[in-house]
């Protein structure tokens, strides 16, 4: 299992041809208290950089973009009932959705943990 990061503060955990995607701890700190998460429909084919999910704090709504292309296999329904999970466990329980990776070549443009740490430093 490999974890990769985008410059938009999303993480991707790669297992075989499935990517589990969420937002980083840095992102949740910037957003503040999350009160609502809208997730894509299972089966939707997402293109890289397309708006895939929405995360809302008290003060604003922010789009979460698909970091790579792929079909939505599963979404985290726990976030509908408990959006605050994004604040308490952004890198774990608060995953957003799982994608069937369409093109592994797209992973090449993403950052590893060291590069992401440097990006947010």
């Amino acid at each position: 299992m490999t974890t990769l990061y985008t410059s938009d503060h999303e993480w991707l955990s790669i297992e075989g041809d499935v990517a589990t995607i969420g937002i980083t701890d840095y992102a949740q700190q910037q957003l503040g208290d999350v009160v609502f998460v809208e997730l894509p429909k299972v089966g939707r084919a997402l293109k890289k950089a397309e708006a895939a999910a929405v995360v809302e704090s008290v003060k604003a709504a922010s789009d979460v973009y698909a970091p790579i292309s792929g079909e939505v296999l599963e979404v985290n329904d726990a976030l509908a009932a408990e959006p605050a999970l994004v604040n308490s466990d952004a890198a774990g329980k608060a995953w957003f959705f799982k994608l069937k990776i369409a093109d592994k070549g797209e992973l090449g443009g993403l950052m590893d943990e060291a590069a992401y740490k440097a990006h947010t430093a």
Binding site: G32, D33, V58, K59
Partner: peptide, 12 residues
């Protein structure tokens, strides 16, 4: 200041 470290929810 839009918020302090407590955050909008707790401040409210």
């Amino acid at each position: 200041p839009v918020q302090y470290p407590a955050g909008v929810l707790k401040e409210h």
